[in-house]
Simulated scan of single mutants.
Amino acid sequence: MRELVMDTETTGFKPEEGDRLVEIGAVELWNHVPTGKTYHQYINPMRDMPEDAFKVHGLSEEFLSDKPVFKDVAQDFLDFIGNDRLVIHNAAFDMKFLNAELGWLNRPPLPMSQALDTLAIARKKFPGSPASLDALCRRFGIDNSNRVLHGALLDSEILAEVYLELIGGRQPDFALKADQNQKVDVSSGEEWRPQRRQNPLPSRLTEEEAAAHAKFIAELGDGAIWNKA
């Protein structure tokens, strides 16, 4: 199952008043394992940035002035997400902005059913407790020390770890920040799937433990399921 853990940054809170997207970040998961494939795009909002925007995002009008406008990246973004699930913290906010941008281009909106809201999951799982991304990082012991400013791709990477904790706990091989040389090669265009280890891990059983186990199974008798061919 393919999922995209996603975050956006905006100039404000109300697209109906002219606020726009300035950044989109997404991390691809397959069966809850990161593939190493990401989407990241800065966007020129074609409007004045609020005075406090730099304090929140670290983005300025000067920095965004040479970035593409949304209409120039819309198709690439839609091609990346396809019809797969979008995992978003406070999904209503991000979907509102994405659909506003799509609407201004006369494109069909993304269905809300495509989004999975981790904020709603957290509030249901921990009623009455803080459910912000930072609060959930503290709860699950996830390092978010690099989150000095809000950034869409960094927040997506952090949210991916939070999401996995919310649905049952991190897997040992869940490593979004793996060595760059070990990232999956997706240049062939073939969809990546997690594979079995090429070399199985060696058994940690001692000879004594293996012998004791075999003796125990033998004592269960021929009717035991472990003794049936």
Results as ranks from 00 to 15, higher is better:
Q198H: 04
P130Q: 04
A120E: 12
K71M: 09
A131L: 11
G82A: 05
H57S: 06
L102H: 06
L21C: 12
P45S: 13
A131F: 11
M49T: 11
R47L: 15
I43H: 07
A152I: 06
E28R: 01
V87T: 02
F77Q: 02
A178P: 03
E28N: 02
N144C: 10
N181D: 15
D155N: 09
L4A: 13
M6Y: 01
E190Y: 01
P50H: 12
N90W: 03
V87I: 10
E161I: 07
I217Y: 08
A214Q: 14
F97Y: 02
A26G: 04
T10M: 01
S65Y: 08
E157K: 01
G25Y: 02
A122Q: 05
N227Q: 08
G221R: 06
E16S: 15
L153F: 01
K96L: 14
Q41N: 07
G141R: 01
R107Q: 12
L102C: 11
K124G: 12
M1E: 15
A218L: 13
E161T: 09
N44C: 14
G169A: 08
L59E: 07
A152W: 04
W30C: 10
A211E: 14
T38Y: 00
G12V: 07
V69S: 01
R147N: 10
Q171K: 14
E209A: 15
M49Y: 13
L21S: 10
F54E: 15
D222R: 07
L159Y: 00
G103R: 02
R193G: 04
I158Y: 00
P68D: 10
L166H: 03
I121Y: 03
R147G: 04
E191R: 14
F70G: 09
I88C: 13
P15N: 04
P50V: 11
A135Q: 05
P127Y: 05
D134I: 10
N144P: 02
M46N: 14
S132W: 09
G223R: 09
Y163N: 01
A100S: 15
V73Q: 01
D155F: 00
F216H: 11
